[in-house]
Nucleic acid binder design. Structure first.
Lengths: 211, 211
DNA sequence: GTAGTTTCCTACAGTGCCGTAGTAATAGCA
DNA sequence: TGCTATTACTACGGCACTGTAGGAAACTAC
């Protein structure tokens, strides 16, 4: 009479839904424990399922994370390029600030997307880091073009290195984005106020808006 | 006749020298493979020694890294606060640029110290990250004081958030420092030229130096 | 209700690293 | 030359995770 207590069956799901659920579980883990706590084991546990179930739909942790990255990347880039479309024209300092403000709003409105990207912190797997790094490079290229186009209107000196400025902008965006998400001392209103102070008559070689 | 091949004895060292050697080995690993490859196992191997030797002088990986951090932190902070002493007075834009240039020179002159700090990348242990984060906070505090003191001379608007500006400066310093060390496209002369373009008449709400 | 399919679980072998107990080699000194 | 302290090595048990093989449950359709 050996009633070996068997684990109760988890809900049966078709592969597609199971995949989505596993990605959600992985994201939850990342948000709660950081990247360090991510493993097949942990993801399975978080989803209330055993490891073989994970191997049933993903060949391993790499492919799973890659899939998660695809999803998160799509979400993040959509928000980003909505605010920074290729044909964007920064006609004056007010426009610049508007862009910054809208970016900030996206970040605080959707922390589940942005925290794993901005609050990189320690323990991030190499693959993830490389992916994010490539996206930052892409963003910089786009921003460089935008800045070149808006150079005259923003009063940027002709010899100014637009690519370097793009580097600076992305680095600052990343840092202040992180501040928005992580720092309790810097609430979003303070960050925005500070940026307003740093930016229009201050940021870059920007001349005050005439009129 | 069982000649079980025994590992040749490594040179015998007193604890103090052994410690130094292990720290060097750990640093080498970090520089070569990134933080991801750091473990007692790997450090011992890098030093040509077995694990128990490591446990003989350190209670574990944590204490070892902590000790390494002490050493590296001292080196880094010494360079940093030499350029940014507490009583520093940023009397004009030229002084600002001078500080930036000197910082850049330190970084490229001592990559072994700065790469593990700036080129954080993935896989960094939490303890290391927290330590570096705390140091950045300390740097920001000091910079905030310096900026407050120099506020009038730099023509910073009275309502400008000096702490936020310090955040921006440290983030930029970090990013361009990394660029100096890692990016082959951005050689040190280009980074410096770009910073010169971004800074004096551009950075912050800085008025051009009169005269 | 029974056969077939899908989905899940248990169980095991394998790997890499940790930490420690016990033993062997070396170096310095009598 | 031998004795002793110091320092190193071997060998083991343990943990957490990985992947996979094989069996059990649950749905589906007839």
């Amino acid at each position: 009479m050996s009633t070996v207590t068997r684990r109760p069956y988890a809900a049966r799901l078709p592969p597609k839904q199971r995949k989505a659920q596993l990605l959600d579980a992985a994201l939850t883990l990342i948000l709660r424990d950081g990247y360090g706590g991510v493993s097949i084991e942990a993801i399975a546990a978080e989803a209330g399922v055993t490891r073989p179930v994970v191997y049933g739909v993903y060949r391993g942790l790499g492919p799973l994370l890659s899939d998660l990255l695809d999803r998160q990347q799509a979400r993040a880039l959509a928000q980003l390029f909505e605010v920074l479309p290729e044909e964007l024209w920064l006609q004056d300092a007010a426009t610049v600030f508007d862009v910054v403000e809208r970016l900030g709003r996206r970040v605080v409105a959707d922390p589940a997307t942005w925290r794993p990207i901005l609050a990189a912190g320690p323990g991030m797997p190499v693959a993830v880091w490389e992916r994010i790094d490539a996206d930052k490079a892409r963003l910089r290229r786009q921003l460089t073009l935008i800045l070149e186009r808006s150079r005259a209107d923003l009063g940027l000196a002709p010899q100014l290195d637009a690519e370097a400025l793009a580097h600076a902008c992305v680095a600052l965006a990343e840092h202040f984005g992180r501040l928005l998400l992580e720092d309790e001392e810097f609430g979003s209103e303070r960050v925005m106020r500070a940026l307003r102070g740093l930016l229009p008559p201050g940021r870059g070689a920007m001349r005050p808006v005439p009129g």
